[in-house]
Structures are given as structure tokens and as C-alpha cells.
């Protein structure tokens, strides 16, 4: 073996990696918030009795779940500016792409948790004369969110991992900075391993917390 593994040089680059990590976390956080909102609205719209609304939202969800995130990102990065007629930055296209992706998977999570809310509750709302927004915000939403929490957590981990793709459109996230330093220093083994370890250190506790939260919740709402 002619390659000498030396992890010490990483110390010179920790601030660059930290900066990349901040970009990764920032974009994940932003798309998480936007995606949760979008996903919830879409999940409610899919339950609508209007066939057009239902068809459009279903198509959106199926399309974004059925195509690679990379092509979604490329489509938005390369094609959207042509359609809109003005430039959009790689940050904006990354946020749009990941939000749409997150919205699609989150809406599926909400949809299955909405389905788990029994019909009796809807009947009870009718009997009590509760309708529209009150029904959604005081009866359905709290229960749906509670039931959805474990899956939403693992959706967030997926988003965090998928965010590495934004490096492909030149966003200087953790992945991009790691790849750049590794090709400048000719030390891919150490650098890429370090990047992988950083991703792991964040995703692992989150993944673990999914089953912990699940147990707590089952205990609490006695499903």
C-alpha cells in the first residue's frame, strides 16, 4: 500500500468543515420547516373532495417520490430560470428542490397519521358543531402531529442526508467543501472519512431517537 493515512492535517481545515456543516444544517433546517408546512397542507388537500385538487396534489406527491432527488434538483437549477426568465441562485434552487422533496414525503407521513384518526372523531366534530379551521387546528392537527412525530423524525434524517446533493449544484455545504479539500490536498481517504463521520455523528443520534420517541409516544397515547 503506497497511501499513507494521516489524519492530523485535518486540524488545519476544521474551520472550513465547520462552515460547510453550518450551510448543511442551515439548508436542512430551512427546508425542514418549509417542507413540514407544505407537507401538511398537501396531506389535507389530498383528502379534499374536489377531484382536481386531489389529482394535482396526488400527482405532485407521486412524482416527487418517484424520481431521484438529483434530477429534481437539476431540473430546478437548470430549467426553472429558463421558464421564469430570470436567474435564481443555487441556494434558492436547492431550497426549492429540497422543500418540494420534503413536502412530498412528509405529506405521506401526515396522510397515514390522518388516516389513523378514527371516523368517530369526525362524527363528534359534526355533533358538536365544530367545523372548518377549528376542526383542523384543535381536533385533527394535534393528534395527527403526535402520531406522525416518529416518522417525521426519520423523514428529517432523510432530508439531512439528501442535503448532500446540493453540492452538485455548487452549494458549499459539508459535502462540497470536503470534496474540494480532498482534491486540493490529495488526501481523499482522511477528508472524506472525516466528512462521513460528521454526517454520522448528527444522523445517528437522530435515528436512534426515533425508536425512543416511538416508545414514549405509544406509552403516552396508548395506541
Amino acid at each position: 500500500m503506497s497511501y499513507n493515512v494521516n489524519f492530523l492535517f485535518l486540524l488545519d481545515y476544521w474551520d472550513a468543515l465547520l462552515e460547510g456543516l453550518m450551510t448543511t444544517l442551515g439548508i436542512t433546517g430551512l427546508c425542514l420547516i418549509l417542507g413540514l408546512g407544505l407537507g401538511f397542507v398537501v396531506a389535507l388537500l389530498r383528502l379534499s373532495s374536489n377531484p382536481v385538487v386531489k389529482a394535482v396534489t396526488t400527482l405532485y406527491v407521486e412524482f416527487f417520490r418517484g424520481t431521484p432527488v438529483l434530477i429534481q434538483l437539476f431540473w430546478i437549477f437548470f430549467c426553472l430560470p429558463l421558464i421564469l426568465g430570470f436567474e435564481i441562485s443555487n441556494f434558492v434552487s436547492a431550497v426549492i428542490a429540497l422543500t418540494l422533496y420534503m413536502g412530498a414525503i412528509v405529506s405521506e407521513t401526515f396522510r397515514s397519521s390522518l388516516r389513523a384518526i378514527e371516523k368517530d372523531q369526525m362524527d363528534a366534530c359534526v355533533a358538536l358543531g365544530i367545523g372548518g379551521f377549528t376542526k383542523i387546528f384543535y381536533v385533527i392537527l394535534p393528534q395527527a402531529i403526535l402520531r406522525a412525530i416518529p416518522t417525521l423524525l426519520s423523514n428529517s434524517v432523510s432530508l439531512f442526508k439528501e442535503s448532500a446533493l446540493v453540492s452538485a449544484v455548487g452549494m458549499s455545504d459539508l459535502m462540497y467543501i470536503g470534496q474540494n479539500i480532498s482534491s486540493v490536498t490529495f488526501k481523499p481517504v482522511e477528508m472524506l472519512t472525516a466528512v462521513a463521520v460528521i454526517y454520522f455523528l448528527i444522523a445517528f443520534p437522530l435515528t436512534r431517537s426515533v425508536s425512543w420517541v416511538e416508545r414514549k409516544l405509544i406509552h403516552k397515547i396508548a395506541l
Binding site: K161, M175, G178, L192, Y199, A203
Partner: peptide
Amino acid sequence: FRCTPALIQIVW
């Protein structure tokens, strides 16, 4: 393999 991005696995 579950807690790191697939992209870094492939590149690695």
C-alpha cells in the same frame, strides 16, 4: 450506511 448520505458512500 443508514446514517450517512448515499452520496458520500459512493464518493468514498
